[in-house]
Design a protein around this nucleic acid. Sequence first.
DNA 1: TATTGTTATACTCTATAACTATA
DNA 2: TATAGTTATAGAGTATAACAATA
Lengths: 145, 145
Amino acid sequence: MQKEPDPLAVAAGLYVSIGLFLRQLRRSPVQGECTPPEISALERLDRAGTATPGRLAAAEQITPQAMGATLGELTRRGLVERRPDPADGRRVVVSLSEAGRHFVRNKRTARTEQLARALADRFTPEELETLREAAPLIERLGESI
Amino acid sequence: MQKEPDPLAVAAGLYVSIGLFLRQLRRSPVQGECTPPEISALERLDRAGTATPGRLAAAEQITPQAMGATLGELTRRGLVERRPDPADGRRVVVSLSEAGRHFVRNKRTARTEQLARALADRFTPEELETLREAAPLIERLGESI
DNA sequence: TATTGTTATACTCTATAACTATA
DNA sequence: TATAGTTATAGAGTATAACAATA
C-alpha cells in the first residue's frame, strides 16, 4: 500500500472512471426521471427554498441562459414556479411548486434510488465509506482547477 | 465515524458532486486539448494497440455511430489510422498513428496534468488515496446499473 | 439473414452574442 | 451605466432510423 499516490495516476484514473460512469448512466435511462441538470436544480431549490435564476446558475456552474432553459422546462411541467420580485422588477423569484417538492422529496429521484440499490447490493460497507468520502473531494477538485 | 453509510445518501452525494465536477471542467477548457470522448478513445487505443470501431464503442458505452464520429475527427487530425481488415471486408481496423501515440504518451493530456496539479497542490496524501480507491468503484457503479 | 459500419436526422445541454426592462 | 433575465443562434456529444456492403 502506497502512502502517497501519484497525482497524475489518480487524475487519469478518476477522469476515465467518471467518463465511463456518465456514459453508462446515459445508456440506462430511468423511467419518469428528470435530466441531470434538472435534478440538480430541483434539489438545490429544495434546500434553498427560493432563489433567482442568476444565483442558481452561479451555484450550478452554468450560464444564466442555460439555467433559464432548465427552469423554463421545469416550469412548463409544473415543478417550479416563477414570480416577479416585488422589490426589484428585474429579478425573478423561483421556488418549487407543491408537485415539485413532492417530486424531490418522495421519489428522491428515481436515478438516485437506482444508484443506491446498486450500492447496497454490490458494494461492501468499506467501499461505500470510500465513496462517501470521495464525493466532496471530487467536488473540491472541480473547484480547484 | 459511521461504519455502514446510507446508500441513498452516498448515491445522492456522488451524483451531485460528479455533476458539479463536470460542469466545472467544461467551464475551464484546456488549451490544445482533446474532448473527453477523444481522450478516452485515444487512451484505450494506446492500451489495445488495434481495435475495430464496434469494439471501441462497446468498451466506451456509446453507439457505433457516436464512436464513428469521434474516430472520424481523430483520423482527420492524423492521430488515428483506419485500415480495412484483410480477413473480413466488413471490418475496419483502427490504431494510433505515430502522432497519436506521441500525443497520448507525452502530453499525457493537458487535462490530466491540470487535474494532477490541483491534486498535488491542494489535497493531502490521505485524500489522494481516497480518490485513488474511489475511481474503480465509480466505474464499477456505472457497470452495476 | 446477421453483422459491420456509415449516412441522415434529431435531441439535450451548453455557450456566446444581442436584446429588453429595470435600477 | 450596470444588472437580471430572455431570445437567437451555434456547437459538442449523443441517440434512433435507414442504408450499403460483406459474411
